[in-house]
C-alpha cells in the first residue's frame, strides 16, 4: 500500500501543499471560494523548517498510532484503507490525541471545538497535497521502494560516490 513520503531536499517551502490541503477541505474545493470562506478552511499538514531542512510535516497514519490508542471517546478509528480518521460527532475536545501525536499534526478547530487531522483525502486517488507539490517533494510510494532507495543512497555514499 502506497504511503505519502517527503523528500526534504526537493521542498521549496512554497506551501502549495498546505494551500491545496485547505482548499480540499473547504466547502467548494476551489481556491477562490476557499479564500473567501468564513470560517476559513483548515489545513492538515504543516511546512516547517529547521537548520538545513525544510519540509511539510504530515500525518503518517502510523500502524500503531498513538493518537488512536489514546482516543477515549471513540472518535478516531482506522478505516478499511488503513487511514486513521475521525468520527467527528464523537470528538469531545479532550486533546489527548494532540498530546500524544509524535509529529504534532493534529490541531484544534476552534469553531467546532473538535480535533482536526489528515484524512489522507480518502476520496481521492492522489491526496491533494501530493498533487499540488510543484517539485514532487511529496510523493506516493511503497515503503519498501523508499527503503530500497535509501539503501542504494547509503551504499553510494559509503563507496564515495554521490
Amino acid at each position: 500500500m502506497k504511503q505519502i513520503f517527503v523528500r526534504p531536499d526537493r521542498c521549496m517551502a512554497c506551501r502549495s501543499c498546505e494551500t491545496a490541503c485547505a482548499v480540499q477541505h473547504s466547502a467548494d474545493k476551489t481556491l477562490f471560494s476557499a479564500v473567501l470562506q468564513e470560517p476559513p478552511p483548515m489545513k492538515r499538514l504543516f511546512v516547517g523548517a529547521a537548520e538545513g531542512i525544510r519540509m511539510p510535516v504530515i500525518c503518517r497514519h502510523c500502524e500503531d498510532a498513538p493518537c488512536l490508542r489514546a482516543c477515549i471517546s471513540g472518535c478516531l478509528y482506522r478505516d478499511d484503507h488503513g487511514f486513521v480518521r475521525r468520527r467527528k460527532e464523537r470528538c469531545i475536545g479532550c486533546w489527548t490525541c494532540i498530546m500524544l501525536c509524535p509529529f504534532g499534526v493534529i490541531t484544534r478547530d476552534s469553531e467546532k471545538h473538535i480535533a482536526v487531522k489528515c484524512d489522507r483525502c480518502h476520496k481521492l486517488d492522489i491526496p491533494a497535497c501530493v498533487n499540488a507539490c510543484p517539485t514532487r517533494a511529496l510523493v506516493m510510494a511503497e515503503p519498501e521502494e523508499v527503503a530500497a532507495d535509501r539503501r542504494q543512497k547509503a551504499l553510494l555514499a559509503a563507496s564515495g560516490g554521490d
Binding site: 512554497c14 502549495s16 481556491l31 498533487n131 510543484p134
Partner: peptide, 11 residues
C-alpha cells in the same frame, strides 16, 4: 507542466 500553479501567486 505548471499545474497546479502556486496559490499565493494566484491570490
Amino acid at each position: 507542466a505548471q499545474v497546479p500553479q502556486c496559490g499565493f501567486g494566484e491570490t
